[in-house]
Structures are given as C-alpha cells and as structure tokens.
C-alpha cells in the first residue's frame, strides 16, 4: 500500500503583498504571531480551519482560492 503525501500551498504571501501589509500587520489583524504568518507563507505550517477561514474572510476570497492541496 503506497502512502499519499498531501502538500498544502497558499496564496497568503501574494495576497498580503498586494494588500501592502507586512507580516506583523497581518498577524496583528488575525491575532497570531508574525512567525505564524511566516510559517504559513513558507508552507511549514498548515493553519487550522478557523484560521484559514479568518484569513479568507480578511482577503474577501473563498478558502479554496487561497489554500490549495496538491497530491
């Protein structure tokens, strides 16, 4: 049986830069640490559903437009 590895990518960095926000500013708005935003942008951390929805709401986009799961 082969194992399947799912990798999640996100558009958070692009959207943040388009909005002209720093990592610290976005972290302040979402109530998380700057390191968490950095970890999400670099793909080291997959946010919880709650945080993903809050990020999507902040950028006024659907969640699936921001977060993609690749097989």
């Amino acid at each position: 049986m082969s194992s399947i590895l799912y990798i999640m990518r996100s558009e958070v960095r692009d959207l943040r830069q388009q909005a002209g926000l720093s990592q610290a500013a976005l972290a302040g708005v979402l109530g998380v640490s700057r390191q968490t935003i950095n970890a999400i942008e670099t793909g080291r951390y997959d946010p919880s559903l709650t945080l993903a929805v809050r990020i999507a709401r902040h950028f006024q986009r659907p969640v699936e437009e921001i977060f993609h799961v690749d097989d």
């Binding site: 109530g31 998380v32 640490s33 700057r34 390191q35 968490t36 970890a39 951390y45 946010p47 919880s48 709650t50 945080l51």
Partner: peptide, 22 residues
C-alpha cells in the same frame, strides 16, 4: 511575547496562538 522568538516562547511555555499550542 510578541517580541520573543518561537524557541523562547516554547521554552517559556507561553502560547500566543494555535501554532504555539501545536
């Protein structure tokens, strides 16, 4: 806590958000 690094928060047991808890 906002100025501390990940390792400092982990060592001090300070949890700022869901990632710290994870």
């Amino acid at each position: 806590p906002g100025e501390a690094s990940d390792s400092e928060r982990l060592a001090a047991g300070k949890r700022l958000d869901e990632r710290d808890r994870a």
